[in-house]
Simulated scan of single mutants.
Amino acid sequence: MGRRIMIVGNGAVAEGAGAIIDAADFVVRFNLSRNTARSGRRTDAVAVCNTGRPATEMLDGPEWRDSAPVRAACEIWSVRDPEKFASLRPQLAVSHPELDDFCDDRTEDFARFAAENGKRHRVIPALVHAAADAALAPHAPGAYVVPSSGLVTLFQVLTEPEFAGAEVVMAGFSHEGWDGHPFAAERRLVASLAAAGRIRLMDASSPSLFPPSLSPSQGA
């Protein structure tokens, strides 16, 4: 068995899952990582929404900067490629005028924070975002703004040579939330990746890892 990479969303995890997550070789969490009390403490990377209001809330307040996951992490991953999101701004001004700050970029601020705190900073490239879009297409995503940070991060792990050969496990994902993300399609896509043996899923009701043939229909 090679390395195990855990991608831990901010949704529900089963009691006892924390020990399995902490035993992984590399753990990625997201933004404010609000479920760490139940989902273990190990954090190697924190993936962040580096544009718009989420970025501002994290960078301009003490909660994110001083949180245990951010202090523990050796890497900060900016999920949104700045050039990709700059290119989205004109079309969103027409289709979603209420998202006037959605593409406001804070990538350099996250990079500065990482450098000042001895952490590596990565920007997930636009090609990974495009791969997630392409993978969603067969799953009837309908109209959406962008894939979720969880899905883009999953595709980063699946396509990054550094993680080649690793077992990839998703936990803490309900595939629910903002309607600008195609969550129903993401659920179907994640289930199909599990069925194909590319990832494994941790059940939200028990700390078990589903093998591909027994993956739950709800995804992660």
Score class of each variant (00 low, 15 high):
Arg4Gln: 14
Met6Leu: 05
Val8Thr: 06
Asn10Lys: 06
Ala12Tyr: 07
Val13Tyr: 01
Val13His: 02
Ala14Cys: 08
Gly16Cys: 12
Ala17Glu: 01
Gly18Thr: 02
Ile21Val: 09
Ile21Gln: 01
Ala23Glu: 08
Ala24Tyr: 04
Val27Tyr: 09
Arg29Ser: 06
Ala37Lys: 12
Ala37Ser: 14
Ala37Leu: 10
Ala37Trp: 09
Arg38Gly: 05
Ser39Pro: 00
Arg41Asp: 09
Thr43Ile: 02
Asp44Lys: 03
Asp44Pro: 02
Ala47Gln: 04
Ala47Leu: 03
Cys49Trp: 01
Thr51Ala: 11
Arg53Ala: 11
Pro54Leu: 15
Ala55Trp: 09
Ala55His: 11
Pro62Lys: 05
Pro62Val: 05
Trp64Lys: 11
Arg65Pro: 02
Asp66Thr: 14
Ser67Asp: 00
Ser67Ile: 03
Ala68Asn: 03
Val70Thr: 07
Ala72Trp: 02
Cys74Val: 12
Glu75Pro: 00
Glu75Lys: 04
Ser78Phe: 05
Val79Pro: 02
Arg80Thr: 04
Asp81Thr: 07
Asp81Cys: 15
Pro82Cys: 01
Pro82Met: 02
Glu83Cys: 12
Glu83Tyr: 06
Lys84Gln: 06
Phe85Arg: 02
Gln91Trp: 07
Gln91Met: 11
Ala93Ile: 03
Ser95Gly: 14
His96Pro: 06
Pro97Ala: 15
Asp100Trp: 10
Asp101Asn: 12
Phe102Asn: 00
Cys103Gly: 06
Cys103Arg: 09
Cys103His: 06
Arg106His: 15
Thr107Tyr: 00
Arg112Phe: 00
Arg112Asn: 09
Phe113Arg: 06
Phe113Glu: 09
Ala114Met: 00
Ala114Asp: 00
Ala115Gly: 15
Asn117Ile: 00
Asn117Val: 01
Gly118Tyr: 02
Gly118Ser: 02
Arg120Trp: 03
Arg120Glu: 14
Arg120Ala: 15
His121Asp: 00
His121Phe: 01
Arg122Ile: 15
Arg122Ser: 13
Val123Arg: 01
Ile124Cys: 10
Leu127Asp: 12
Ala132Asn: 03
Asp133Thr: 07
Ala134Asp: 10
Ala135Ser: 14
Ala137Thr: 04
Ala137Val: 05
Ala140His: 03
Pro141Gln: 12
Ala143Cys: 01
Tyr144Ile: 10
Val146Arg: 05
Ser148Met: 07
Leu154Arg: 14
Phe155Ile: 12
Phe155Arg: 01
Phe155Lys: 09
Pro161Val: 13
Glu162Trp: 10
Phe163Val: 09
Ala166Leu: 02
Glu167Thr: 10
Val168Asn: 07
Val169Gln: 08
Met170His: 10
Met170Phe: 15
Gly172Cys: 04
Gly172Pro: 04
Phe173Glu: 05
Ser174Cys: 11
His175Lys: 03
Asp179His: 06
Pro182Asp: 10
Ser192Asp: 15
Ala194Arg: 11
Ala194Gln: 02
Gly197Phe: 07
Arg198Cys: 08
Arg198Thr: 13
Ile199Glu: 02
Asp203Met: 04
Ala204Thr: 09
Ala204Val: 02
Ala204Ser: 11
Ser205Leu: 12
Ser208Lys: 09
Leu209Asn: 00
Pro211Ile: 01
Pro216Lys: 15
Gln218His: 15
Gly219Leu: 11
Gly219Trp: 05
Gly219Ala: 07
Ala220Gly: 15
